[in-house]
Design a protein around this nucleic acid. Sequence first.
DNA 1: CTCATTGTAAATCATGTTATTACAATGAGT
DNA 2: ACTCATTGTAATAACATGATTTACAATGAG
Lengths: 144, 144
Amino acid sequence: MQFSFRMPVAVQILLCIAKFDGVFKTTSTFLASSVNINPVIIRKTLGQLKAAGLVEVAAGVGGARLVKEPCEITLQEIFNAVEEDEDLFHIQENPNPQCPVGRNIQQVLGNKLSVVKNHMLNDFAKITLADLLNDINTAEQNRQ
Amino acid sequence: MQFSFRMPVAVQILLCIAKFDGVFKTTSTFLASSVNINPVIIRKTLGQLKAAGLVEVAAGVGGARLVKEPCEITLQEIFNAVEEDEDLFHIQENPNPQCPVGRNIQQVLGNKLSVVKNHMLNDFAKITLADLLNDINTAEQNRQ
DNA sequence: CTCATTGTAAATCATGTTATTACAATGAGT
DNA sequence: ACTCATTGTAATAACATGATTTACAATGAG
């Protein structure tokens, strides 16, 4: 069990936009070939990132660009842009109300798990697009 | 996108076993009625918890009991017992190797996310079955 | 006006989770 | 030794969700 493609795809999109800014026009088709995924998914994800105020997309002419600096874009923003705001775990909705465990499990376990999720979001908030861009560049240098 | 039932179900099973120890025989059918889920899933989950050394199950006669004290059983153990050991996020397996972002994304993003996952597991390690049992009991008292 | 591109809907495919049925194996109680 | 409720497990079906694909109207620079 793991989270879907969505956040990693969004990260890769943003990295490409940052990396190829001014070099290539970052159309959905161009981005799709980097991620190796269908262009429609890129366009959908780009729409979510636009709604979150992270990118601008040029309808008609094509291409996308960052609205904020890479050092100002965190993984938390990206995560929130593409994932629903919901609990980390799916807790059974209809436990037995006759059972003292069943009738309290949602609240009790939910409380604990929401703290864990907040920690995770805080971790995400500490990671910026600039960090990742930097790691990419370092990895590229080590290639030679 | 969220994690499945599995861990919450396992937690509820263990809480019931702890709570009803010596009062009721905790068979898969009994536990299934608290969680309101199919008994086969209970048996499967119980098998995973047994393999993890958290419970003993009496084949034939029926019923399960904890092998360790509730204060010694952490959410991390329960999580590991029922979930695969895999990355938090699904990162595209076949990115474009021609693209400097595509050919490094797995390593770069994977590194960052594995740190986050470890934090999450550490958080789980700090939550014990005894904590949850305590919260359940408090909630029950506040009912009256 | 043209044309590459975006935005979006709809249909399909793939995968994973949960539910259900079925039945051999178990083992305490008689 | 027999009984019987129960476990362990396999196999299958039902369902939900994510990802893919096709299609096409809307966009807007040139």
